[in-house]
Write a protein that binds this DNA or RNA. Structure first.
Lengths: 96, 96
DNA sequence: TTTGTATATCGGCATTTATCGATACATATA
DNA sequence: TATATGTATCGATAAATGCCGATATACAAA
């Protein structure tokens, strides 16, 4: 758990949005073709208004920081929050 | 309380260090000439290894984000944590 | 094998950030 | 007033970040 890397990852509104959306997949990605318990398909996040390549890059930042996990299924990559790391981070930042 | 601005402010190790040091002034700035309840003198933070101008810039970022308050006394400027804003931020980030 | 779809990576560009030394500004003191 | 000290701002430069379109890669299906 690299706190500095996590803070840098959170310091962008699009990435914060993605993490927040992922907290309630049913509320934000109900239209997804695949079952939501597999995670949320990368392409779904293009709703933030950025290009596919930019979104992919933001997702990579979140993953490198350990804030999300990914799972490839066929041609798709599904994203989920990594609640363990997030909880660990929150505990650490809690006594800021 | 601008959460995004605060996250950006926190996303630099030197600024995190400064905020952390300010949490326990007695532990980190006991050598200061002035009483610590006035705050910590700007120059004290040069111990992070950066130049005076760079440190001043980092302090300005923290202040703009509302994370610290300043008070000029004579030729010195004293810094204190802004616990209200920090608490508000922690509450907001708490349900990340 | 060819085509189509989803995602990642690459190259390029613009913007932002970090950093420093030099200088300006504020205040205290001689 | 002149000088010294602490802090902020300026100008320059390098590095990092964000963004896009184009291309590459992974996989599925025809």
């Amino acid at each position: 758990m690299d706190k500095d890397e996590i803070l840098k990852a959170l310091a962008h509104p699009a990435r914060m949005d993605i993490l927040t959306w992922l907290k309630e997949p049913e509320a934000h990605f109900s239209g997804q073709e695949h079952p939501l318990d597999m995670g949320v398909c990368a392409g779904q996040f293009e709703r933030c208004g950025l290009s596919q390549s930019t979104v992919s890059s933001h997702l990579a930042v979140l993953q490198r920081a350990g804030l999300v996990t990914t799972r490839r299924v066929g041609q798709w990559v599904f994203y989920k929050r990594n609640e363990e790391t997030i909880a660990e981070f929150l505990k650490a930042i809690g006594n800021l």
